[in-house]
Simulated assay, not measured.
Amino acid sequence: MTDSDPAPAVIQLLPPEAASNPSLVSEITTLVNQVYLEAEGDFFVETHLRKLLRTDPAQVTEYIQLHRVYTATHDGHIIGCIKLQIEDAGDQACSAKVGHLGLFAVSSSQRRSGLGRRLVEVVEKDALLRGCQAMELEILTPKEGGHVFKDFLKVWYSKMGYRVVRTEELADSLPFLVPDIIRPSHLVIYQKHLVEESEKGLVA
Results as ranks from 00 to 15, higher is better:
86 I>F: 03
98 V>F: 03
52 L>E: 11
73 T>Q: 11
79 I>Y: 10
99 G>F: 00
92 Q>F: 05
49 L>D: 05
134 A>H: 06
129 L>G: 08
114 G>H: 07
94 C>W: 06
125 K>A: 13
85 Q>R: 12
123 V>K: 01
58 A>V: 14
69 V>Q: 02
120 V>C: 12
142 P>K: 02
60 V>I: 15
139 I>M: 12
46 E>A: 15
58 A>K: 12
71 T>R: 08
115 L>F: 10
116 G>L: 04
80 G>Q: 07
46 E>H: 10
75 D>I: 04
95 S>Y: 04
35 V>D: 06
64 I>D: 00
63 Y>V: 13
109 S>F: 12
99 G>I: 03
135 M>Y: 00
58 A>Q: 13
133 Q>W: 05
97 K>A: 12
61 T>W: 00
118 R>D: 14
137 L>P: 13
136 E>P: 01
50 R>W: 11
125 K>L: 08
118 R>A: 14
97 K>S: 03
57 P>E: 04
119 L>A: 10
47 T>D: 14
100 H>F: 06
107 S>W: 00
47 T>L: 08
104 F>I: 02
132 C>S: 05
92 Q>T: 10
125 K>D: 09
104 F>Q: 03
121 E>P: 02
76 G>Q: 03
51 K>H: 11
59 Q>E: 14
42 D>A: 10
107 S>T: 06
56 D>L: 02
87 E>S: 13
71 T>P: 03
127 A>E: 01
127 A>H: 01
105 A>S: 13
48 H>E: 14
66 L>N: 13
72 A>D: 09
58 A>T: 12
48 H>P: 03
95 S>E: 11
136 E>C: 08
133 Q>R: 14
125 K>Y: 05
93 A>E: 09
89 A>P: 02
109 S>G: 15
95 S>M: 09
109 S>R: 14
74 H>M: 15
146 G>F: 02
75 D>M: 08
127 A>V: 02
39 A>L: 05
138 E>S: 14
115 L>N: 07
120 V>H: 01
77 H>C: 10
50 R>Y: 13
118 R>I: 09
86 I>M: 15
118 R>Y: 06
51 K>G: 15
47 T>Q: 11
114 G>I: 07
144 E>R: 12
79 I>S: 03
44 F>W: 10
106 V>R: 09
115 L>I: 10
123 V>Y: 01
136 E>D: 09
140 L>D: 00
39 A>T: 12
112 R>P: 06
102 G>H: 01
112 R>M: 09
50 R>H: 15
81 C>F: 00
121 E>Q: 15
62 E>C: 11
71 T>W: 02
134 A>P: 00
66 L>R: 13
49 L>A: 07
71 T>V: 15
135 M>C: 07
81 C>P: 12
64 I>K: 01
102 G>E: 00
106 V>K: 02
96 A>V: 07
44 F>R: 06
80 G>P: 11
129 L>N: 11
133 Q>I: 03
141 T>D: 04
83 K>Y: 06
125 K>W: 04
107 S>H: 13
72 A>Q: 12
53 L>D: 10
81 C>Q: 06
